[in-house]
Amino acid sequence: MRRIFTSALLLGGAATAATITLLNVSYDPTRELYQDINAAFAKQWQAKTGDTLKINASHGGSGAQARSVIDGLEADIVTLALAYDIDAIADKGLLPENWQKRLPYNSSPYTSTIVFLVRQGNPKGIKDWGDLIKPGVQVITPNPKTSGGARWNFLAAWGWAQKKYGGEAGAKDYVTKLFKNVPVLDSGARGSTTTFVERGIGDVLLAWENEALLATRELGVGKFQIIVPSVSILAEPPVTVVDKNAAKHGTAKVAQAYLQYLYTAEAQEIIAKNFYRPRSQDVATKYAAQFPKVNLFSIAQFGGWRAAQKKFFADGGVFDQVYSGR
């Protein structure tokens, strides 16, 4: 009934027919994912309410995107690479401190992890983290100072080493050796993929699992293979509504619905198709072949993102020490 009414209004040229605009500010590798999600959700939303939904997207480095939102980019929704970046937005009062409790699974409707991408046939025989510090092995990773993905890489390596060598000193020694094998530190994850794939540099690329899968399926079929290390980190890219902006735009409801949609079976399927690990058990089972079992530890092991950021990546932190210790 309402739909007919709306159409009539549209035909009559009245301006009340609702065209709602949402802005989703996201990080780099999610472009393809959210293109699919946006189309599917807009269709569903129109069927349900009759309103035309236009979802604008902005992608970039996770930290840079969060900074844009802090500085006034009026995102209704943020979908970033790590919780620390959304914490930073919360610190400025744009959304409540407890944002991560508002949606299931720490507000992460999908997860990913860090894996190794090697050249076909694995000529250097890379099997686990320990192999990365062998002499003559070149490792490609972006710069943790400028890339969210690189921070997950770093913490994954650290987590493994801490367990293996039984302490901080051993872990630090390991990552120091690891970064001695890094010939190029690109500023972002996609830059690193290009360096590895197109420039032919390096023996191993430390990458988001979703990026590695994308690379093997779409960038160079038969040229690369994925090696899953014995343990890795559970990367939980979080999503949330930016309350203050959504209130201003009057989009709180649709923004909320958008994020809840991400947890539905339909969206979880899209998520899996885009190489992110779904939360839904059913979808996960269906795509089990795509996502090998990995022993995962979480960011909680480091006391959460705020603590990890401060300890490892802030100026003078562990990453800086690794380099200035030379």
């Binding site: 500010v25 472009r31 992608h59 970039g60 972002g188 996609r190 994308l214």
Partner: peptide
């Protein structure tokens, strides 16, 4: 810019976006 597709992208920014989409 804020890099909103279709709204605040200039040609050079669009080049980077396309490149980053492989």
């Amino acid at each position: 810019s804020g890099k909103i597709r279709g709204l605040t992208n200039t040609l050079p920014l669009h080049v980077e976006i396309l490149y980053n989409e492989y």
